[in-house]
Design a protein around this nucleic acid. Structure first.
Length: 546
RNA sequence: GACCCCAUCAUCUAGUGGUUAGGAUACAGCCCUCUCAAGGCUGGUACACGAGUUCAAAUCUCGUUGGGGUCGCCA
């Protein structure tokens, strides 16, 4: 390209490559220290895979004493959404992922390699694009989108590999005069990379997670600068990860096929490529087939789903660690009191299968364990924080009944390994404990006659008898003796053993009597420890219900 | 269609030439028990298929089948 053409393409002054390199010198790293990043697009949507990637990258960097940073990849202006950076920052913060450098939720850059927002780095990309152009490693392309569509259709029809390469790379062979004419005519252009690759030749790429992969070289002249002057992902990746000193790029599987291109780009720019590790995306079972968790079809692909439902952050982190390294479970068992982030994540042991199915049952199991380990106060605070955002009315109710709800949460809690584990996520609490409140307590004694094999009259009688002897201060034994007495009086076995030995001798057993009381008190046949419930409810409420 | 990746219980997986193929979740049964949870114990036709290499294959090779991913001025 002649200087005239280059000046026409880049009329505005740009920093020189030397200036840029001086401004962003290589990092001073100790041997073994790794630099990683998480680089989401601000689409307003945080994919759970993004959290997965961030967690792996963060651990890899920080466990090595290195640097982990956040970069906002907003080169697609069409997809950009207002407030999306805040969503990203909040998501990371929520799961305890701390970026040493990057962008805060107000969009402010921090760190020596700023800016970390790609749209603010336009001049940097252009400077390097211009350099490639000068060196004959890139060229302007004037093909319209329709031309490209048509070309792809023809290629497909002829059974050719689709893409802009070889004889299909029309603008690669434009003469300087033709380029100048197009430019003078005001034709829009993009900048394409002049690929030195040969599709017939093969190369081996070393993937940290997948091992050696044998692939054909890239021969596609991909776009590096779009019509709006912003770079494509590929070009921005090379420029940014070079300048920002990234040593390890950990990203989703979908990028594997681009690695030959990315390496070409690094070579063309005279840089050393980072090490790559590609992990398989989270899958979902759909009609018997696995498929990638999809933003469009699967609400749980959005990390916000887990906030709305009120999954403890710790639970999700532990679940993801468990997916990254199955040995997490063993580690957790031997280190029950450590923080999940203390887990020595083994980068080399990330399973390299086709992608794990997201398993809610497993998440739930982990979540129960996490919640069971918390104190009633901690649970209360966590749910209150959640409710303030997602159930404001309930948050108010919680605040008005702080002591009462804390007592409820304490039922069968903190008895070591046998702690009650039925709360899975914050949203479950409201319905779980609704019967503790008179305004949400519902009961239909009639509906239990069949299940309990007793008439309403009989049940009422039992309730009244218990009411007559109930004392909220009774300890558990005294309390239960009273129930046994009533059981005996009505021809029910007072001891389970006796009943089991000769069931036909009794109308039922003491558990039936307890169940009658349970129904009167809670409106349900299933509940936590009845004695504890009565103690927490208090004398007045219990007597009322009886 | 081309290219790449993957293949162990229902699910996540351990396993790198010799294991009664291990763990977790889920499921089922028993125990405990005032119900439910929790806890304890027990259980189940898991190495996709077919060849080959080897004294020996889940493990190595080839093929088949199945699944996933990529082929954009999206990332």
């Amino acid at each position: 390209m002649t200087p005239e053409i280059i000046a026409k393409m880049f009329p505005n002054p740009l920093p020189s490559v030397a200036e840029i390199e001086a401004k962003y010198p290589p990092r001073a790293l100790q041997p073994g220290q790794k630099v990683t990043r998480v680089a989401p697009s601000p689409t307003g949507f945080m994919h759970i895979g993004g959290i997965y990637a961030a967690l792996v990258s963060e651990r890899v960097a920080h466990q090595s004493g290195g640097v982990f940073f956040l970069r906002i990849e907003d080169t697609d202006q069409k997809r950009k959404v207002e407030g999306a950076t805040e969503v990203i920052c909040n998501s990371l913060a929520r799961y305890g992922i701390v970026a040493d450098e990057g962008v805060d939720k107000d969009g402010k850059n921090y760190g020596p390699y700023a800016p970390y927002i790609q749209s603010e780095r336009k001049e940097i990309y252009q400077a390097y694009a211009k350099k490639l152009l000068e060196e004959g490693l890139a060229y302007p392309c004037f093909c319209a989108a329709e031309d490209l569509d048509l070309m792809r259709k023809i290629q497909e029809k002829q059974g050719q590999r689709p893409g802009y390469y070889g004889k299909y790379a029309h603008c690669r062979n434009l003469s300087d005069d033709e380029v100048l004419d197009n430019l003078n005519a005001g034709k829009p252009w993009v900048l394409r990379f002049k690929s030195p690759g040969n599709n017939e030749k093969r190369m081996v790429i070393k993937d940290l997670l997948k091992g050696d992969i044998n692939m054909p070289e890239n021969d596609l002249d991909i776009v590096i600068l779009k019509g709006d002057g912003l770079p494509t992902y590929h070009f921005a990746h090379a420029v940014d990860d070079h300048l920002m000193g990234t040593t390890h790029v950990i990203r989703g599987d979908e990028w594997v096929s681009s690695v030959p291109l990315h390496i070409q780009l690094f070579v063309a720019l005279g840089w050393k490529a980072p090490k790559y590790g590609h992990y398989a995306p989270l899958q979902k079972l759909d009609n018997g087939n696995k498929r990638k968790l999809s933003k469009r079809h699967d609400p749980e692909a959005n990390i916000m789903y887990f906030w709305e439902k009120g999954y403890p952050e710790e639970a999700l982190v532990e679940y993801i660690f468990n997916l990254i390294n199955a040995s997490f479970e063993d580690w957790r068992r031997t280190n029950p009191d450590k923080k999940a982030f203390d887990f020595p994540l083994n980068f080399n042991k990330i399973s390299n299968t086709a992608g794990a199915l997201f398993d809610f049952q497993k998440l739930h199991s982990i979540s129960k364990e996490v919640i069971a380990k918390m104190t009633a106060n901690e649970v209360f605070e966590a749910i209150l924080t959640w409710a303030k955002t997602y159930r404001p009315a309930y948050a108010e109710k919680m605040q008005n009944n702080r002591e009462y709800i804390t007592k409820i949460l304490n039922i069968e809690r903190n008895i070591g390994k046998k702690s009650r584990k039925d709360l899975v996520k914050w949203e479950d609490l409201e319905s779980d404990i609704s019967y503790f409140f008179d305004d949400t307590f519902t009961r239909d004694i009639d509906s239990f006659t069949e299940e309990l094999h007793l008439s309403v009259d009989e049940m009422t009688k039992i309730a009244e008898e218990f009411k007559a002897v109930f004392d909220v201060n009774d300890d558990k034994n005294t309390w239960f003796e009273k129930i046994k007495t009533i059981a005996g009086k009505h021809g029910f076995a007072t001891e389970m053993k006796a009943y089991k030995e000769n069931p036909s001798a009794y109308k039922g057993n003491v558990s039936d009597i307890a169940n009658v009381l349970r129904v009167f008190i809670t409106g349900r046949t299933q509940s936590p420890d009845l004695h504890a419930i009565m103690s927490v409810m208090g004398s007045e409420r219990v007597l009322n219900r009886l």
